[in-house]
Computed example of a mutant assay.
Amino acid sequence: MLPWSVEFAGRLEEHVVSSELLRDNPLNDPHERPVLVYVPPGYDDEPGRRYPSVYVIMGYTGHVGMWGNRMPYRQPFPETADAVFASGEAPPAIVVYVDAWTAYGGSQYLDSPGMGRYHSYLCDEIVPWVDARYRTLDAPEHRAISGKSSGGYGAMITPMLRPDLFGALATHAGDALFEYCYLAEFPKCVRHLRKYDGDIWRWWEDFTSRASFTKEADMDLLNILGMALCYSARDDGTPELPFDPVTGVIRTDVWERWLTFDPVRMAPRHADALRSLRAVWIDGGTRDEWFLDVGAQAFRDALLDVGVSEDVIHFELFDAGHGGIDYRYPLALSWICRAIAP
Rank of each mutant, 00 (worst) to 15 (best):
W129E: 03
W129Q: 09
W129C: 02
V130G: 00
A132W: 11
Y134F: 07
Y134Q: 00
Y134I: 00
R135N: 06
T136R: 01
L137G: 01
D138V: 14
D138A: 15
D138P: 06
D138I: 09
P140C: 09
P140V: 04
P140H: 14
P140R: 14
H142C: 15
A144Q: 08
A144G: 02
S146H: 06
S146I: 14
G147F: 10
K148M: 15
S149L: 06
S149N: 10
G151S: 12
Y153H: 11
A155P: 00
A155G: 04
A155T: 04
M156C: 14
M156L: 12
T158N: 09
T158A: 08
T158W: 14
M160Y: 11
M160C: 12
R162V: 05
D164Y: 15
F166T: 05
F166D: 07
A168F: 04
A168L: 04
A170Y: 03
A173T: 01
A173R: 11
D175V: 15
D175W: 13
A176S: 15
A176Q: 08
F178N: 03
F178V: 06
E179T: 09
E179D: 15
E179P: 02
Y180M: 13
L183N: 07
L183H: 11
L183M: 09
A184W: 09
E185M: 07
P187H: 11
P187M: 12
P187E: 08
C189K: 01
V190W: 10
R191F: 03
R191E: 15
H192N: 14
H192R: 12
H192C: 13
H192Q: 12
R194S: 09
K195I: 05
K195A: 15
K195L: 15
Y196D: 07
Y196H: 08
Y196P: 06
D197C: 00
G198T: 07
G198P: 10
G198D: 00
D199E: 13
W204E: 15
F207E: 13
F207W: 14
T208E: 07
R210E: 07
R210D: 13
A211S: 04
A211G: 06
F213T: 11
T214L: 09
D218S: 13
D218I: 11
D218W: 10
M219S: 12
L221N: 01
N223G: 09
N223I: 12
M227K: 08
A228Y: 05
L229G: 07
L229T: 06
C230P: 13
Y231W: 10
Y231G: 03
S232W: 00
R234H: 15
R234P: 07
D235I: 10
D236V: 06
G237Y: 03
T238F: 07
P239Y: 02
E240I: 02
E240P: 00
E240S: 05
L241P: 03
L241T: 06
L241F: 01
P242M: 05
F243A: 04
F243G: 01
F243K: 04
D244A: 07
P245C: 08
P245Q: 02
V246L: 13
G248D: 08
G248E: 02
V249F: 06
R251T: 04
R251D: 10
T252I: 12
T252N: 05
T252R: 08
T252P: 00
T252K: 01
D253F: 00
D253L: 02
D253Q: 00
V254L: 01
V254G: 01
W255D: 00
E256T: 00
E256H: 03
E256C: 02
W258I: 03
L259K: 03
T260K: 08
